[in-house]
């Protein structure tokens, strides 16, 4: 299967040769497949957003190449196709709303693509259903909660039928309820709709839900793997000043103190299962 996004040995320098020259990406390679949910974590300045902006040709690499469904982002004649293939959602929901009703906002993208009106109606209804906002067609976006606004922004991208959605800290300005609404939506897009999802976040409990986690530091990929592989290295993450979920940290400390825990739990239920098995309460027991 062809990856939706292929990043090959990409380096990117801001203000190359100028006084503010910064090497924001250094030899980064990454592939994202359709239906895959990839979380990218790392500090401000680690290169996360610069990487994201390469995925729909907002930036083109200083060295290396980025391919979107095989189209090189350097190829300006394909820019339109690339942008239609990869949709972006940004941090601040208020900056992304353009219309006075939810349905007009979602229709904005397809209208610009010249999609016929009947088809637009269908896409808008479908997109709103996908983000669980059916019934809010006539609502004024500014009256919605942050999580709802962000879901409308996602619907606006979905209505353009992209193969990939790149979300640059879409939950940073939301409260926990809004965050979990957006996360549930994003996961569904990957698992049910087969869309490739690249989710940039500062929240480790969101990264835990991804298929794959990429940790950026100093413009490079410092660590990558499944959430369990990545979060089983709390010392490494801490050396990068990143958090680990409390249960992962607890399991690590328990193991360091001699407790016979084997895996790195990612959720409360997993650690509860493991502890219960050892001390012989709840279901089962006796395993060591």
């Amino acid at each position: 299967m062809e990856p939706v996004i292929r990043v090959e040995n990409v380096s990117y320098t801001y203000d190359g040769g100028g006084p503010g020259e910064v090497e924001a990406l250094l030899d980064v390679s990454l592939e994202v497949m359709g239906g895959e949910f990839v979380a990218v974590i790392g500090h401000n300045g680690s290169g996360k957003s610069t990487l994201a902006k390469h995925m729909n040709a907002i930036f083109v690499p200083t060295r290396g190449d980025v391919f979107v469904l095989g189209m090189n982002t350097r190829d300006e004649s394909r820019l339109w196709d690339i942008r239609q293939t990869v949709g972006m959602v940004f941090q601040n929901p208020d900056n992304q709303i353009v219309a006075t009703t939810v349905e007009e906002d979602v229709a904005f993208g397809p209208e610009n693509l010249g999609v016929p009106p009947g088809e637009i109606r269908r896409r808008v209804d479908e997109a709103l259903a996908l983000v669980d906002m059916t019934g809010n067609e006539k609502s004024a976006p500014h009256m919605l909660s942050g999580g709802q606004k962000q879901r409308v922004a996602i619907a606006g991208v979905i209505a353009m039928r992209p193969r990939c959605i790149v979300l640059d800290e879409p939950t940073a300005m939301l409260d926990p309820v809004g965050r979990s609404e957006v996360l549930a939506t994003v996961r569904r897009l990957a698992s049910d709709e087969g869309i490739a999802v690249v989710h940039i976040t500062h929240f480790m409990n969101e990264a835990v839900l991804a298929d794959r986690v990429v940790v950026m530091e100093g413009g490079r990929i410092a660590l990558r793997g499944t959430p369990r592989e990545v979060f089983s290295q709390p010392a490494m993450l801490r050396s990068l000043d990143l958090d680990v979920p409390q249960v992962t940290e607890l399991a690590y400390a328990l193991r360091a103190a001699g407790a016979p825990l084997t895996r790195s739990p990612l959720t409360v239920a997993e650690l509860a299962d493991d502890v219960a098995a050892i001390v012989g309460v709840g279901r089962g027991g006796g395993q060591s």
Binding site: A253, L254, A256, A257, A259, P260, V275, G280, S288
Partner: peptide, 23 residues
């Protein structure tokens, strides 16, 4: 949690154990 976990593992096998309880 540590006492219960160490107690259980102690019963299971007198394995090696670091005494340090740190975080």
């Amino acid at each position: 949690l540590l006492p219960a976990l160490l107690g259980a593992s102690g019963r299971a096998n007198e394995g090696e154990r670091e005494g340090e309880v740190g975080a």
